[in-house]
């Protein structure tokens, strides 16, 4: 009887520790998996850009600047060796420039009527939505993981094992930006 109690007293904390530790690992893996989910979508966007630029170029004579900016941002993004922050920053700029391009496109009815451009734009919208979904999923997992790192009792295990909180993936608010650009023309 006494032996059983002693065993329980020793074993129970160990089991709880293992449970919490595995939970933390699980959460961290989900965060990392979600981050690579964003990466996949970002790469898809990089792949589309050369096509987009070459299609647009046929119609646009006076918008060289935006196109060069987009091309150079893309080539910096695919060059690799970027920290996460740099990657986020670069992609936010890219989103911004692509939005600006969308506004300019309004002045080129022939371009808008082009079937291949329509397809490209749909694909791009698709990827934008996917990026935004991936980012929100990542943030949801980060929130879950960070809660575990901060909340009792899992924070004890997290501290012992040196788990660090993750940063949220901040994206500029595209919708607001869109409205702001639109306002300039109204």
């Amino acid at each position: 009887m006494v032996l059983t109690i002693i065993l329980i007293v020793i074993l129970l904390p160990i089991l709880i520790f293992i449970g919490i530790y595995n939970g933390l690992i699980n959460s961290r893996n989900r965060v990392e998996e979600a981050f690579s989910g964003i990466d996949v979508q970002l790469k898809k966007r990089y792949d589309l850009i050369p096509n987009l630029v070459s299609t647009v170029k046929q119609y646009m004579k006076h918008e060289e600047k935006i196109l060069t900016e987009i091309t150079s941002l893309r080539s910096r993004a695919v060059s690799g060796d970027l920290t996460t922050e740099e990657k986020v920053q670069l992609n936010n700029e890219l989103t911004d420039r692509l939005n600006a391009l969308n506004v300019v496109v309004e002045n080129y009815p022939e371009l808008k009527a082009d079937q291949s451009f329509d397809n490209l734009q749909r694909a791009l919208n698709e990827i934008e939505s996917q990026i935004s979904a991936s980012r929100r999923t990542y943030n949801a997992y980060v929130r879950e993981f960070n809660n575990k790192v901060e909340q009792f009792p899992s924070n004890i295990v997290a501290n012992m094992k040196g788990f660090q909180k993750y940063e949220f993936f901040k994206a500029q608010e595209e919708e607001k930006k869109n409205i702001a650009v639109g306002d300039l023309f109204s």
Binding site: A34, S129, Q130, S132, A133, S134, T137, A140
Partner: peptide, 12 residues
């Protein structure tokens, strides 16, 4: 699917 759920249910 967590990610696709957010693809469908956008904030808007």
């Amino acid at each position: 699917d967590q990610r696709e759920a957010r693809y469908i249910l956008t904030p808007a």
